[in-house]
Amino acid sequence: MKTCIKNFFDNEILSYLFFGVATTLVSIIVRITIFYLCKQELWATALGNIAGILFAFFTNDTIVFKQKRKHWFKRLIKFTTARFITFLLDLLLTFIFVTSYPHIIGQFVGDNLNTINTIETIFAQLTIIVLNYIFSKVFVFKKH
């Protein structure tokens, strides 16, 4: 069993997908919790992304891409910059589909804002996982 787990996490793509899902769950849980508590979709999106970015950096740096501790701060800056780009995309999608035009999704769910926010969140996170892998692989965690 231990060997299977080790082999799983030694596979970069499987490991990335596992921690991508974990990161997405962290982000979604924080985001939806904040939204339910204060009904501020942009703040919820921002705090969810911050929690996800920090969780993702540490798991990607140490487990997925197995980087040496040297130059970790430089990687953190690159990683944060790349994630900031997808964060802006996330904010834009939230602004369009939850804040400005909630009826686009709402027409299918009785215009329930909580459901609209949840659907948009899941769609945005799936798109962001793919983009974040590309950014991480190409720009941040290079093999030396």
Rank of each mutant, 00 (worst) to 15 (best):
I85T: 11
V26E: 07
T81D: 02
L91Y: 00
G106C: 05
K39N: 13
L131D: 04
D61F: 12
T115M: 14
I122Y: 10
N114C: 08
I116H: 00
K143V: 14
F139M: 13
K142A: 05
S136I: 04
L93E: 05
L37K: 14
T24P: 05
T59K: 01
T81H: 09
N114V: 10
V98D: 02
F73H: 12
I53C: 13
K6W: 08
I116G: 00
L91D: 00
F141S: 05
V98N: 02
D10N: 14
I53T: 13
F8N: 07
L37F: 11
I96M: 12
F55Q: 07
S15Y: 01
T33H: 06
D111S: 10
I129Y: 04
K78P: 02
I34K: 02
R75T: 02
I116S: 02
V98H: 00
F35L: 00
I85A: 08
N114T: 13
T80E: 07
W72Q: 06
W72E: 05
F65D: 00
A22W: 05
I32S: 07
R83D: 09
F65P: 03
F123V: 12
Q40V: 06
K68Q: 10
S136A: 10
R75L: 03
N112P: 06
I105W: 04
F79D: 02
K2A: 02
T24L: 03
L47R: 12
T59D: 04
F35G: 00
Q67C: 01
K68G: 05
I32Q: 06
P102I: 13
N7T: 12
T80N: 10
I85L: 08
